[in-house]
Amino acid sequence: MMRRKIRTLATGLFLAMVLLISGCSSEQYIVLDPKGPIGESQKDLIIISTLLCAVIIVPVLILTAIIVWRYRDRPGRKAAYAPEWEHSTKLEVTWWAIPIVIIVTLAIITGIYTYKLEPSKPLASEKEPITIQVTSMDWKWLFKYPGENIATVNYVKFPEDTPIRFQLTSDTAMNSFWIPQLGGQLYSMSGMAMTLYLQADEQGSYYGSGANFNGMDFAQMTFDADAVSQEEYDAWVQEVKSSSPALTMEGYEALAKPGRSDVQLFSSFPEGLFEHIVTQYVEEGSSGAHSHHGAQAESDEEEADEEAHHDHSEASADTQATDASEANHDHAGHAGH
């Protein structure tokens, strides 16, 4: 209860500061108006770190003003003048110590939050997460729902209060998948599947964008992310299934050609399309994937192997994806060792 109050107070103070600077209404500050647990924690962190920095910045600014004013050269001034005074161990130790204390505090907080908010970490919830496979293309977003077997372009819809496991990849150049009100962004990169867990705590239509420049019509890669009730979501899935065309392999290849796109809905998509996109650049029988570095490449290899051996061909796309993301998570944990 107390924490809640402090949080509200701090948010209020922070918003007041921002508003004072800009004079605009607070709803527009979507980063500071989160609607999900990840965005909420990130906002807390932004506020904590701002206040912590302000502890040192504000006195320094005041001190600067005072010193400049007090020691300006003018006839008959009373302030002391000590041209040879150039060292004081006590003072210097003090201002090595102050920033060290602040930075150590901030570093500890950052460390804790870094592990807490690791994007591939599943969200605690009683509900099963929904997997949505996201592909950034030139210049549109393709969303696939392996559980529901539907696909959309430049539009994504999901139920509220349910963890969403976004799996991100890119068909060509890297982009960054960002729905500010749900939480921070993560790169979508070709040849790998990144995992980003987000959740919307309330219904609404949220702004989403591609945050990393990927060429000509980059600015057209915005989309709406709608969080709706479970019933509404189920009805929508049924409607898409019954009234929209299917996405065929040819359809996908046409979509992959550079260009912008309006919102599109598809009643189905080719099986294993996401895995195909992730592994499209790995040459048949080559050890190409082994030359990748970093945490994610390993999981791609597994996916590539799965593709190659067809051992898991009966397993649903969803299970495959789970394997991949778990491997992903494990390796991410080891990356820094």
Binding site: I56, E92, W95, A107, A295, A335
Partner: peptide, 25 residues
């Protein structure tokens, strides 16, 4: 946001913050 994992991010976050110390001094 490349998703290098929490260890890598924590390391580089802290080294970056360290630079603020001599700059502040």
């Amino acid at each position: 946001t490349m998703g290098s994992g929490a260890n890598v991010n924590a390391f580089f976050a802290i080294t970056t913050m360290i630079i603020a110390i001599p700059t502040g001094v």
